[in-house]
Design a protein around this nucleic acid. Structure first.
Length: 613
RNA sequence: GCGCCGGUGGCUCAGCUUGGACAGAGCAGCGGCUUCCUAAGCCGCCUGUCGUGGGUUCAAAUCCCACCCGGCGCGCCA
């Protein structure tokens, strides 16, 4: 791909128009006697309500300075405003000066970028550095539930967007195999089942040693004794001692890592299989225990002992007084080790982050809002350690059930496995009813894709800050603002293009992909739905850019819905094949472009585009 | 008690970073559309004290203050 094409496909067509309006307006305002910084003016340009043009410049502020009415200033400023090229029309309205772009320009600028960029349309091709995204990192204690899967879906999407925005992204899963929770499970499984406490045997439903039952996932099987074993450890001192002895022996190198990690590994394998169903994959697994075995944790704790604000608490625990770092009084002292000298979770996390910060240009953690305080402490201590860069965080709120907080103990839990299975079977029912002609294996594939798409789309479409109350009927919606709605629009566009090729329009399509220019001027006037679709398609590069900067991943499903919605309306309103001959090139180009942009968006949100459904 | 985050039609949510023109969608409800490119679709109707009260401003869902409700957290768990 040549340099020129690169710059075209990642350049947002609107930026040039905006700066042209801003600089012309700035000159004209200057002549009238008020000088305004160019970037301020550019920022103030907004999008007017439907039917009033494409861009709007509010003039209230400047009217006041000039002692004119906003209406008057708008007409004076609009008088003789140079049109041509991208700009077709300027009209004062109230205190605004509204601009309408030329439709041929919009079509050419948008479609040519899509055709030359293809699956990279909207992407930034210029390298922007190395970034590490850490997400999910669930404790290996059992199956993933819907709440924790929100983490993975947000994290995976963010990683995809960062990659599209030009970053070299590495996705990490931090496996906490050494903390109290995982250790409890390693401990219980280290004993023969007949030595388990009776109530653990009873409640786990595991009564004898033996291989994993047929058809059960390893995370489900290995996780069964967790709730009861964890209670035993909390209540019985001997059990608690056995768990910490086990941990200490491992840390001293007396248990081979492969043996110690057998149970966590089984669980991780099960969790990864489930995450694979929603297209979540990792580049690297960082085992927490490795940070201990290779001395990283010891080194970090050693450094902290000599930190300027290190303090010893009564009993001997090491803490960092972070009040100088601006932490509120209740968080001011950050404990690093226990009184007995063993390190706390944050000590290991500090070692991990020190390593990541040395290796990457940006370090991003996707973590639940219950860890907000922990993250603040982490930041404060890292800065106490004198690290120049800081990790960034994307927090998300919890998923609860209508009956309340999810709880394994109370049996109030929805696992991602159950949700995906249910989604699959409902989707299969739909597919077989609607498309009896599809071969069974394709129907199966479509059902899996549609089910997973519905789940991912649903969990992604709420702003991460907001708590979600999980309801089956919302998560499994296949219509309206849903994953399947978008997949359906994509499939219809694909189908139409297949039909076009079958009816001999293949050469025209191939020609269009080389450039729309030779089919200009467009058959005027365009249907308003054609123009609306173009407008939506043209927004994509700016959206990708924005999401990569602020992590607002929930905007992507929203956008996918908008494009689908406009494609469907267009498709309903005008005839592509067998319609007016002079409209065929533009309409085919629109369908092909919309399909491309939907495909690109679906890729970012991790939902599979389907050629047929 | 303190801190952080949320509170927008019957339900679920965009919009708030950077104040701007009648607050947008989806679901549910009601009424239409299939001799025609996939009806998981399209078109139309109905539904709003933007939690409450103050303030700043020519202009507030958006910024500031107070309060109410919900979520999350508050040193030897992770």
């Amino acid at each position: 791909m040549s340099g020129k094409e690169e710059s075209i496909s990642n350049e947002n067509p609107w930026t040039a128009v905006r700066s042209r309006i801003a600089s012309e307006a700035a000159q004209r305002l200057e002549r009238l006697g008020v000088s305004v910084p160019l970037d301020q003016l550019e920022r103030e340009i907004s999008v007017p309500p439907e039917g009033m043009g494409d861009l709007a410049l509010p003039l209230f502020r400047y009217a006041k300075k000039l002692g004119k009415s906003p209406q008057e200033l708008a007409s004076v400023l609009g008088e003789g405003f140079p049109m041509g090229g991208a700009l077709a029309h300027a009209a004062p309205a109230g205190g605004f000066l509204n601009f309408t772009v030329s439709v041929p320009w919009l079509a050419e600028a948008t479609l040519s970028r899509i055709f030359s960029g293809k699956e990279r349309y909207g992407h930034t091709l210029k390298p922007r550095g190395r970034v590490c995204v850490e997400h999910t990192s669930a404790n290996p204690t059992g199956q993933l539930h819907v709440g924790r899967s929100r983490n993975g879906i947000i994290g995976d999407t963010y990683a995809r967007v960062l990659s599209a925005a030009g970053y070299d992204v590495r996705v990490q899963f931090y496996v906490d195999d050494i903390g109290r929770q995982a250790a409890t499970l390693v401990w219980i499984w280290s004993k023969p089942v007949h030595d388990w406490p009776e109530n653990v045997r009873e409640r786990s439903g595991i009564s004898s040693d033996g291989p994993k039952p047929e058809g059960m996932k390893p995370d489900e099987w290995r996780g069964k004794p967790y709730p009861s074993a964890s209670e035993v450890v909390k209540q019985e001192e001997t059990a608690a001692r056995e768990v910490s002895d086990l941990t200490s022996r491992f840390e001293r190198g007396e248990i081979p890592p492969a043996e110690y990690r057998k149970v966590p590994k089984d669980i991780l394998d099960g969790v990864l299989a489930t995450l694979g169903r929603v297209h979540i994959h990792f580049d690297e697994f960082v085992w927490e225990s490795d940070l201990i075995l290779d001395g990283s944790v010891r080194k970090t704790v050693g450094e902290l002992e000599h930190a300027p604000h290190a303090v010893r608490l009564e009993g001997g625990a090491l803490a960092i007084d972070a009040s100088a770092q601006g932490l509120p009084p209740d968080l001011a002292k950050v404990l690093i080790t226990r009184s007995d000298g063993t390190h706390l979770y944050i000590a290991r996390d500090l070692a991990y982050h020190t390593r990541k910060l040395a290796e990457f240009d940006r370090v991003i953690d996707v973590i639940g809002e219950d860890h907000k305080a922990h993250f603040r402490s982490l930041l404060a201590v890292l800065s106490e350690m004198g690290l120049p860069r800081k990790p960034e965080v994307l927090h998300y709120a919890f998923v609860s059930l209508p009956e309340g907080k999810m709880s394994t103990r109370a049996g109030r839990i929805v696992t991602l496995d159950d949700l995906l299975d249910e989604a699959h079977s409902r989707a299969l029912k739909e597919v077989t009813e609607r498309r009896a002609d599809l071969p069974p294996d394709e129907a199966e594939h479509v059902a899996e894709s549609v089910g997973a798409g519905a789940v991912r789309f649903h969990l992604l479409s709420v702003q991460p800050d907001k708590p979600i109350v999980f309801r089956w009927e919302d998560a499994l919606s296949f219509e309206g603002k849903s994953g399947p709605f978008v997949q359906y629009s994509y499939a219809r566009a694909s189908s139409l293009l297949r039909k076009a090729k079958d009816s001999g329009e293949g050469p025209l399509l191939a020609d269009l992909e080389k450039g729309i220019t030779k089919y200009l001027p467009l058959p005027e006037p365009l249907d308003p739905r054609e123009v609306d679709l173009l407008r939506s398609l043209s927004r994509f590069p700016a959206l990708v850019r924005r999401v990569s900067e602020d992590g607002s991943v929930h905007l992507l499903p929203l956008y996918a819905h908008e494009v689908s919605d406009r494609l469907n309306s267009f498709y309903q309103a005008v005839r592509v094949l067998g319609g007016e001959a002079q409209s065929l090139p533009l309409r085919l180009a629109l369908v092909a472009s919309a399909r491309q942009v939907l495909g690109n968006t679906l890729h970012l949100i991790g939902v599979e585009p389907l050629e047929r459904m």
